[in-house]
Simulated assay, not measured.
Amino acid sequence: MATRPDPPTGASRSRTGGRPAARTAKLSRDVIVNAALAFLDREGWDALTINALANHLGTKGPSLYNHVHSLDDLRRTVRMRVIGDIIEMLNTVGQGRTRDDAVLVMAGAYRSYAHHHPGRYSAFTRMPFGGDDPEYSAATKAAAGPVIAVLDSYGLEGEDAFYAALEFWSALHGFVLLEMTGVMDDVDTDVVFSDMVLRLAVGMEHRR
């Protein structure tokens, strides 16, 4: 009777199937945070726990505590990282653009990010938004910075620009949520989105 060959060196069988478990990576805070970002997009915010992430990394939960203090610490770090990535993305796509051109491009990039990274987007918009964490509250407000910079090309400054940026974000966020939940499955969402953003841009012009 033939015997089953041993698994390759360094691999182990998972408890739930025949595939080898993921090979343990050399852990660091950056490795853990990057893994958490990928985990979010695949499994969602509510599924992110220390043990679930450790299993994703092919290790045990206690190993992660050498690099993150707690689940709250991990989640806060992930959210701060997502905010930074979104700010960088909006600054990049908006660079050298002004007025309607910039608004259209930035809105499209925001929508694309939400669809390609649903778990990260959920982390970005998760409540409570700032709470009693001044650094996190400041970071979330900074996320409006790239839009405010574009609104300057419409002649909007200070408080007017900040409130216009909030209106802009509210419209995009609401659209993305409706789209993701399937409410608009029967309509051409690309057309509706473009029309909405153009109307927002026209509204910026009249806010002065």
Rank of each mutant, 00 (worst) to 15 (best):
Asp100Phe: 08
Leu27Asp: 04
Leu90Asn: 02
Asp190Thr: 12
Arg13Thr: 11
His69Gly: 15
Asp41Gly: 00
Leu48Arg: 01
Val176Lys: 04
Pro8Tyr: 14
Leu71Cys: 03
Ser194Leu: 11
Arg75Asp: 06
Met196Tyr: 01
Tyr154Arg: 03
Glu167Arg: 08
Ala52Tyr: 05
Phe162His: 10
Asn34Glu: 07
Ala161His: 04
Ser112Glu: 15
Gly44Gln: 12
Thr98Arg: 07
Leu156Trp: 01
Val187Gly: 06
Ala201Lys: 02
Ser112Asn: 13
Asp85Asn: 13
Gly131Trp: 13
Glu159Cys: 04
Ser70Asp: 09
His116Thr: 15
Ala144Trp: 00
Met106Ser: 01
Val82His: 03
Ser28His: 06
Gly158Ile: 08
Arg79Glu: 07
Phe124Leu: 14
Ala52Lys: 12
Asp6Val: 08
Phe39Val: 04
Gly96Val: 05
Met89Pro: 05
Gly203Glu: 13
Thr59Phe: 04
Leu71Pro: 01
Ala25Arg: 07
Ser112Gln: 14
Ala35Thr: 07
Ala165Asp: 00
Asp85Phe: 03
Thr16His: 07
Val33Trp: 00
Leu64Arg: 01
Phe39Leu: 05
Arg97Ser: 06
Asn34Thr: 05
Met184Tyr: 13
Tyr121Phe: 15
Ala54Arg: 00
Ile87Ser: 02
Pro128Arg: 15
His115Arg: 13
Ser14Ile: 08
Thr125Ile: 14
Val78Gln: 01
Leu90Ala: 02
Met180Tyr: 00
Gly18Ser: 10
Asp152Gly: 14
Ala35Ile: 03
Val202Trp: 10
Val147Thr: 12
Ala107Pro: 09
Gly174Glu: 07
Ala21Ile: 04
His173Gln: 12
Val150Glu: 00
Ala102Asp: 04
Asn91Tyr: 13
Thr189Met: 07
Gly145Lys: 05
Ala161Pro: 03
Ala2Tyr: 13
Ile148Asp: 02
Ala139Ile: 06
Arg4Gln: 15
Thr189Cys: 09
Ala36Leu: 08
Asp190Gln: 09
Lys26Cys: 04
Asn34Lys: 03
Ala36Phe: 05
Ile32Thr: 00
Thr9Val: 15
Met180Ala: 08
Arg19Asn: 04
Met89Thr: 13
Thr24Phe: 03
Val103Pro: 00
Gly58Arg: 01
Glu88Cys: 07
Asn51Trp: 03
Leu74Val: 07
Asn66Phe: 14
Asp152Lys: 14
Asp133Gly: 08
Ser112Asp: 15
Gly203Ser: 14
Ile86Pro: 02
Arg208Val: 13
Gly94Gln: 04
Arg13Gln: 12
Asp188Glu: 15
Leu48Ile: 06
Leu198Cys: 01
Asn51Pro: 05
Ala109His: 06
Gly108Tyr: 00
Asn66His: 15
Thr181Ser: 14
Leu151Val: 08
Val105Phe: 03
Met89Ile: 12
Asn66Gln: 14
Glu135Thr: 15
Thr59Ala: 06
Val183Ser: 11
Val197Ile: 12
Arg207Pro: 00
Gly130Arg: 03
Asp133Ala: 08
Glu159Pro: 00
Asp132Ala: 14
Arg29Trp: 07
Gly131Ile: 04
Pro7Val: 10
Arg15Val: 12
Asp101His: 13
Arg99Thr: 07
Gly44Cys: 12
Tyr136Pro: 00
Ile86Tyr: 02
Lys141Trp: 11
Thr49Ala: 09
Asp152Ile: 04
His69Arg: 15
Glu179His: 11
Asp30Phe: 00
Thr16Val: 15
Asp6Gln: 10
Gly203Thr: 11
Gly17Glu: 11
Leu178Gly: 05
